[in-house]
C-alpha cells in the first residue's frame, strides 16, 4: 500500500468521524445533506458486497466494516434520531439525477457483466457524484459551518490523495484501474470550487460563505 493511499484512507475516516462527531455533539443535522449521506451509504453497501467473498487484508476488511457501519449510523442520526433538525427544505437535489446515470454507466462500462462487477462500477460512479446534494445545499443556503467545511475538505482530500496513489502504482506496479481513475478525477474536480473557498476563507478564520 502506498503512503498516498494510507493518507487518503485516513482522511476518509477522519471525514466520516468528523461528521458523526458534529451531528452527535450538537444533536443537530442542520446544514447536512441527508441525500448525500444516503447515497454514500448506497456506495459502501454496493461496493463492499465482496466483504465475505474476497479477503484482501485485515486492514481492508476493518475499513469496509467501519465505512458501512459509520455510514448507516450517520443516516440513522439524520433521518431518525435528529430528524427534527434535518434541513430537508434546503436538501432539494434530485437523487435520481445521479443514481440513474451511474447505474446506466455501470451497465455499459464495467470489468465484467456480472452482478458483483456492475454493483462495484455503480458504486464507483455514484461515489464520484454523491457529494452534489451537499454542495448544492451549501450553495443554496450560502454558507457552511466550519466543522462542515472541515468535513468536506477531508472528504475531498481523500480522492485527491488516491489520484497520487494511482500515479505511484501505475509507475511502480503497472497497476491501472481506468474506472476508478476516471471517476476519481471527476470526484476531485467537483470539489475544486470548495477547495478554493476553504483555503481563502476557512483557513483564514472566516466562515465559508458563497458569494451571491
Amino acid at each position: 500500500m502506498t503512503l498516498f493511499r494510507l493518507a487518503g484512507d485516513l482522511s476518509h475516516v477522519l471525514a466520516i468521524l468528523l461528521l458523526l462527531y458534529k451531528i452527535w455533539t450538537t444533536k443537530s443535522a442542520a446544514g447536512i445533506s441527508g441525500k448525500t449521506q444516503l447515497m454514500f451509504c448506497m456506495v459502501y453497501v454496493t461496493r463492499y458486497l465482496d466483504l465475505f467473498t474476497s479477503f484482501i487484508s485485515v486492514y481492508n476488511s476493518t475499513m469496509k466494516v467501519l465505512f458501512i457501519s459509520a455510514s448507516v449510523a450517520t443516516v440513522y442520526l439524520i433521518y431518525f434520531k435528529f430528524k427534527a433538525t434535518y434541513d430537508g427544505n434546503h436538501d432539494t437535489f434530485r437523487m435520481e439525477f445521479v443514481i440513474v446515470p451511474a447505474l446506466i454507466l455501470a451497465l455499459i462500462w464495467n470489468y465484467a457483466f456480472t452482478f458483483f462487477e456492475i454493483s462495484w462500477a455503480f458504486s464507483i460512479f455514484l461515489e464520484a457524484v454523491a457529494i452534489l446534494p451537499q454542495l448544492f445545499m451549501v450553495t443554496k443556503t450560502g454558507e457552511a459551518e466550519n466543522i462542515t467545511s472541515h468535513y468536506l475538505f477531508a472528504l475531498g482530500s481523500y480522492r485527491a490523495l488516491y489520484i497520487l496513489n494511482w500515479i505511484d502504482r501505475y509507475y511502480f506496479e503497472g497497476h491501472w484501474d481506468p474506472i476508478a481513475v476516471t471517476a476519481g478525477i471527476v470526484q476531485t474536480v467537483l470539489y475544486g470550487d470548495f477547495f478554493y473557498l476553504y483555503f481563502t476563507r476557512v483557513i483564514k478564520g472566516r466562515k465559508l460563505q458563497v458569494l451571491p
Binding site: 493511499r5 484512507d9 476518509h12 461496493r47 465482496d50 467473498t53 474476497s54 484482501i56 481492508n60 475499513m63 469496509k64 465505512f67 470489468y111 465484467a112 456480472t114 458483483f116 462487477e117 462495484w120 488516491y162 496513489n165 484501474d177 476508478a180
Partner: peptide, 10 residues
C-alpha cells in the same frame, strides 16, 4: 473467479 481483477483498494 467472478472478478476480472481484484479490487484491492477501498
Amino acid at each position: 473467479g467472478r472478478f476480472v481483477k481484484t479490487h484491492d483498494e477501498l
